[in-house]
């Protein structure tokens, strides 16, 4: 056993730094997407990472859905109560904005979904 530091001692340090950098690798598999459902049918999915807004056709008029800095919300709805607009912004996987009379829902899917207990 050598007792004085050797140049190859840097090898485990470099490997350790490489291991520490592992989480920085972007993982698209876990990327969150906004999925639009219409009458229980999956109609469209939009990545969460990009800021956009799009129009969704519902049974009671059109919805304008906006994705902005990791948050999803309905900006416009053509109905008297506008419950969907009032539902505010959602950002976590598993949360949804639903319009029952319009039979549509936008759901955030993918990402790190929590288990049934914590959700």
């Amino acid at each position: 056993m050598r007792l004085k530091p050797a140049p190859l001692d840097l090898l485990p340090i470099l490997i350790a730094i490489a291991i520490a950098l592992l989480p920085l690798i972007p993982n698209d598999k876990h990327a969150e997407t906004v999925v639009v459902y219409r009458s229980h049918e999956r109609r469209a999915s939009v990545p969460m990472s990009r800021d956009t807004s799009f129009v969704v056709d519902t049974d009671i008029g059109e919805w304008t859905v906006r994705i902005e800095s990791g948050e999803v919300f309905v900006t416009e709805a053509h109905c008297p109560k506008r419950i969907c607009v009032g539902m505010g912004r959602i950002s976590r996987p598993g949360s949804a904005i639903v319009c029952a009379p319009g039979k549509v829902a936008v759901v955030i899917e993918g990402g790190e979904e929590l288990d049934a207990v914590t959700r």
Binding site: M1, L3, A6, L8, P12
Partner: peptide, 18 residues
Amino acid sequence: WKSKVPMSIYGISITGAV
């Protein structure tokens, strides 16, 4: 240690800790 990589006790100990 047994692989005879020319590493000192420092490298072996860091390997262990990491």
